[in-house]
Simulated scan of single mutants.
Amino acid sequence: MTQVIWQDSYSIGIDTIDTQHKQLFDIMNKIYVASEEDSDIDVIMPLFDELQDYTKYHFDEEEQYFTTLSQGGIEQHKSEHQFFIDELDKIKQQSLRIGTISLELLYFLNDWLVNHIQVEDPKYLDHDNIS
């Protein structure tokens, strides 16, 4: 696995949300680098806490924004967000038990986030009203 590099194709066309997505990538990359350097769990966990906190902040912001744009279906989106939050918690607990974070878990985070940004987020946009 390599670091998650932002690509223009990931942009959903809303600057605030795109900036937040980039921040999520940055935090994930910090975790990846720490893992690659075989950093101690005491180094990785604060980064993981940052990812959890920022993910919750971003999802809340995104849900509020999408609620104003969408006619429905936001509950499904919220459910997907909750799934990711729950998975982050499971990964954190597992990492604490084993003393490190596995690359397999980082793959999951990367794949889920990229797929979510590219496939799920655009479903809630009214492209006629994006500036």
Rank of each mutant, 00 (worst) to 15 (best):
residue 13 G to A: 03
residue 13 G to E: 05
residue 15 D to L: 11
residue 16 T to L: 14
residue 16 T to Y: 01
residue 18 D to L: 02
residue 18 D to K: 02
residue 19 T to E: 14
residue 20 Q to R: 06
residue 21 H to L: 04
residue 22 K to C: 02
residue 22 K to Y: 01
residue 22 K to F: 04
residue 22 K to D: 03
residue 23 Q to R: 15
residue 23 Q to L: 08
residue 24 L to P: 01
residue 25 F to V: 09
residue 25 F to I: 09
residue 25 F to M: 10
residue 26 D to K: 13
residue 27 I to Y: 06
residue 27 I to S: 01
residue 28 M to K: 01
residue 28 M to R: 05
residue 29 N to D: 03
residue 29 N to G: 03
residue 30 K to D: 12
residue 30 K to W: 05
residue 30 K to L: 12
residue 30 K to G: 02
residue 31 I to S: 03
residue 31 I to H: 08
residue 31 I to R: 02
residue 33 V to Q: 15
residue 33 V to I: 13
residue 34 A to Y: 00
residue 37 E to S: 13
residue 37 E to M: 12
residue 38 D to L: 13
residue 38 D to G: 07
residue 38 D to Q: 15
residue 39 S to W: 06
residue 39 S to M: 06
residue 39 S to I: 06
residue 40 D to R: 12
residue 41 I to Y: 07
residue 41 I to R: 01
residue 41 I to P: 01
residue 41 I to W: 05
residue 42 D to V: 09
residue 43 V to H: 08
residue 43 V to R: 12
residue 44 I to C: 00
residue 44 I to K: 02
residue 45 M to F: 11
residue 45 M to T: 15
residue 45 M to W: 08
residue 45 M to V: 15
residue 46 P to I: 05
residue 47 L to E: 09
residue 47 L to W: 05
residue 47 L to A: 07
residue 48 F to T: 05
residue 49 D to N: 14
residue 49 D to G: 07
residue 49 D to S: 13
residue 51 L to V: 03
residue 52 Q to A: 10
residue 52 Q to R: 11
residue 52 Q to G: 08
residue 53 D to V: 08
residue 53 D to M: 11
residue 53 D to S: 14
residue 54 Y to L: 08
residue 57 Y to T: 14
residue 57 Y to F: 15
residue 58 H to F: 07
residue 59 F to P: 04
residue 59 F to C: 04
residue 59 F to E: 03
residue 60 D to M: 10
residue 61 E to F: 09
residue 62 E to M: 07
residue 62 E to S: 06
residue 63 E to V: 05
residue 63 E to Y: 08
residue 63 E to I: 03
residue 64 Q to G: 10
residue 64 Q to E: 14
residue 65 Y to D: 04
residue 66 F to E: 05
residue 68 T to V: 10
residue 69 L to K: 13
